[in-house]
Deep mutational scan, measured.
Amino acid sequence: MKTQEELTEIVRDHFSDMGEIATLYVQVYESSLESLVGGVIFEDGRHYTFVYENEDLVYE
């Protein structure tokens, strides 16, 4: 089982391919040991929310 830090790094690596990240945040109250819920804001102003669970990243 991966730690929350490892899950965060996986998500950061994925989004870094889309541009320069200004902020990546995790909603700790919605996340667990198996899933990571949060959002990412890019330097150009784009903002996505995401759920990473079971090695699957869903964002909008």
Rank of each mutant, 00 (worst) to 15 (best):
E9F: 10
E30P: 05
L57K: 02
I41G: 03
K2W: 05
E60T: 15
E60W: 15
G45K: 04
E5T: 09
A22M: 10
E43P: 04
Y48M: 07
Q4G: 04
E34N: 15
M1F: 12
T23C: 13
V28I: 15
G45M: 04
M1A: 12
V11M: 05
F15E: 01
E55V: 06
F50H: 00
V58A: 09
Y29I: 06
Q4R: 11
V37A: 08
E55P: 06
S32T: 13
R12M: 09
F50K: 00
E60G: 09
L24D: 00
V11E: 01
S31R: 08
Y48W: 08
N54F: 10
T3G: 07
L36Y: 04
V26E: 02
V28M: 13
L24A: 02
I21T: 02
S31P: 14
E20W: 08
G38E: 01
E30W: 06
I21L: 06
G19E: 01
D44L: 02
Y59A: 05
L7H: 03
L7R: 04
H47K: 07
Q27H: 13
M18R: 04
H47F: 07
Y52R: 01
E34Y: 08
M18G: 03
D44W: 02
E6P: 03
L33C: 09
T23Q: 12
E60C: 12
E20N: 15
Y52E: 00
E30Q: 09
D17N: 12
H14A: 13
V51W: 15
N54K: 15
I41F: 08
V51S: 09
G19M: 02
T3K: 06
S31Y: 10
Q27Y: 11
L24Q: 01
E43M: 15
G39H: 12
G39V: 12
Y29G: 07
D13T: 14
L36Q: 01
D13C: 12
V58F: 14
G19R: 02
V51A: 08
F15V: 02
S31W: 10
E30C: 11
I10N: 05
D44N: 06
H47S: 06
E55N: 14
G45F: 04
E6L: 07
G38Y: 02
E9C: 09
Q4C: 08
I41T: 06
H47N: 04
E5S: 11
Y52G: 00
V58H: 14
V26R: 01
D17F: 15
Q4N: 05
D13S: 15
E55K: 15
M18E: 04
H47Q: 06
E30I: 15
V40M: 02
Q27R: 09
S32I: 11
E53V: 14
E9K: 14
D17I: 14
F42T: 02
F15M: 06
V11G: 01
R12E: 04
F50M: 00
F42G: 00
Y52V: 05
E6D: 09
F42Y: 05
D13R: 14
T23D: 09
E60P: 03
H14G: 05
Q27F: 10
G38L: 03
S31C: 09
Y48L: 09
R12S: 05
K2T: 06
R46E: 05
R12L: 09
D44K: 01
F15H: 00
L36C: 04
E6R: 04
S35K: 15
T49E: 06
E53A: 15
M18T: 03
Y52D: 00
V51P: 00
V40C: 05
S35Y: 15
Q4M: 15
D44M: 02
R12A: 06
T3A: 05
T8E: 14
D56R: 15
D56W: 15
E30F: 06
Y59Q: 03
E20H: 14
V26D: 01
F42C: 02
V58K: 15
G45W: 03
D13A: 15
E60M: 13
A22Y: 09
N54E: 06
E34I: 11
Y25L: 04
V26C: 05
Y29F: 10
L33K: 14
S35C: 10
H14M: 15
K2A: 07
V26T: 06
K2S: 06
M18W: 11
V58C: 13
I41C: 07
D17Q: 15
V26G: 03
E34K: 08
S35T: 12
L33A: 13
Y29R: 05
G38A: 01
Y48V: 05
M1W: 10
H47D: 03
T49K: 14
F15Y: 03
G39L: 11
Y48N: 01
R46V: 05
E60Q: 14
V58L: 14
I10W: 08
F42K: 00
I10S: 05
T23F: 13
L33Y: 11
V58S: 15
I41Y: 09
Y29M: 07
G19Y: 03
E5V: 09
G38Q: 02
E53F: 13
Q4L: 14
H14V: 12
S31G: 11
I21H: 01
S31N: 09
G39T: 10
D13E: 12
A22I: 13
V37E: 07
I10H: 07
L7N: 03
V28R: 13
R12K: 10
E34P: 14
F42A: 00
L57G: 01
Y25C: 06
T8D: 03
N54I: 05
G19L: 03
E9H: 11
S32G: 10
G38D: 01
V28C: 10
T8C: 09
G39I: 13
Y52H: 02
F42P: 00
I10Q: 08
G45S: 04
V40D: 00
G39D: 06
H14W: 11
D17C: 14
V11F: 03
K2M: 09
I21C: 03
Y25S: 04
V37P: 00
G19H: 03
R12D: 02
H14R: 13
V11Q: 00
N54W: 07
Y59D: 03
E60S: 14
V51D: 03
D56Y: 15
L7C: 04
L7D: 01
F50A: 00
T49Q: 08
S31F: 07
R46C: 09
V28D: 08
G38S: 00
M18V: 05
A22V: 14
E55S: 11
Y52L: 09
F50P: 00
K2P: 05
G39S: 09
G38F: 03
E9I: 12
L33F: 10
E5G: 08
L36W: 05
F15I: 03
S35H: 12
R12N: 05
Q27C: 14
